[in-house]
Structures are given as C-alpha cells and as structure tokens.
C-alpha cells in the first residue's frame, strides 16, 4: 500500500515536471507514458495541437500522437489556398506500420504548409511542436478555439485514453 502510494506520488511529480519542462526527459522506464504537453497551446481529442498567434493558427500533431504512431515515414498535406473544416481531415501521417488521418481542430483557409516534412517526415517525431508543424490556417471563426482542450485537460484526456486501451 505504502509502495503504491509512493509510486503514485512519484508519477505525479514526473507529470508536473514534464509539463513545466517539456524538453527534460524523465529518467524512469515508464517515461514513454509521459508525452510532453505544452502550455499556451490548444488540443483536440483527435490529438492535434493549435497555436493561435495574431491572424494565423499553426497546427500539428501532439507528442502523444507521434509516440503512438512510431516513426513517421511520410506526411501527406494539402496545398496552400485550400480550406479546412473543424473535425474534418486535411492530410495523413504514415508510419512504418499504420496510416492515420489528421483532422483539423478549426475551420479556415490554409495559408502555409510545412514543405520540410516532404523530405524529412521524421521531424514530426523529433519536434512535434516546432519543426514538425504541418499547416498554418487563417481561422474563419476564432471562437472555435474556445471549445478545444487546454494542456491540463488534454493531459488528463490522454491518461484516460491510454488507461482504457
């Protein structure tokens, strides 16, 4: 009982650590369960993130998503000028073993696409929140962002989802 409580409190401490210092890799063997989650972003239940700055929102998939996928070998993205709709697919990520649709968390016009991913799809694994970004969108309705999850809520969502599998 005491040991279980100790393990639980240690895990909680690690979670706090990973949230506040996302690039610090926890030293324990179960660190894979603690994918990083950044403050300042919004999250969708299909594991995409959004960073809204000024008139543009940047979108990618989360660290949790890339961890579940494994190594990404191909990223299929749309062309600039197209539109995306909230909860609809705009592309796909291919790993060694699986194909996954990427859904947009918001609606709007695509203004930029990360061309680097064509040559270096592994950026999605190595840098999901920075170099591995996918599309930039001019939101048609910024209030759609309000219904997305914040980092704490998303962290809890991932824990519950993993626990149920």
């Amino acid at each position: 009982m005491a040991l279980r409580m100790w393990a639980s409190s240690t895990a909680n401490a690690l979670k706090l650590s990973s949230v506040s210092r996302p690039h610090l890799l926890p030293p324990f063997s179960f660190s894979r369960c603690l994918s990083s989650v950044l403050d300042g972003l919004k999250y969708a239940d299909s594991h995409e993130w959004v960073k809204h700055e000024g008139s543009v929102a940047t979108i990618g998939i989360t660290d949790h998503a890339q961890d579940h996928l494994g190594e990404v070998v191909y990223v299929e993205l749309p062309e600039p000028g197209g539109t995306v709709s909230k909860k609809s697919g705009f592309g796909a990520v291919e790993s060694v073993k699986a194909t996954s649709d990427i859904n947009s968390p918001i609606s709007g016009e695509i203004v930029e696409v990360n061309k680097k991913l064509t040559e270096t799809p592994g950026l999605v694994n190595s840098s999901p929140y920075e170099d591995g970004w996918m599309i930039k969108v001019k939101p048609s309705d910024p209030s759609e962002l309000d219904s997305l999850m914040g980092p704490k809520e998303y962290t809890k969502f991932c824990e519950e989802e993993d626990a149920s599998h």
């Binding site: 299909s46 594991h47 995409e48 998939i61 998503a65 579940h68 996928l69 494994g70 990520v93 073993k97 699986a98 194909t99 996954s100 649709d101 990427i102 859904n103 599998h165």
Partner: peptide, 9 residues
C-alpha cells in the same frame, strides 16, 4: 488524428 498501434492490432 485517428489510428495507433492498438488499432493496427
């Protein structure tokens, strides 16, 4: 994003 190793299984 949909899909994971679990779904692959």
């Amino acid at each position: 994003m949909r899909g994971s190793l679990w779904q692959l299984g």
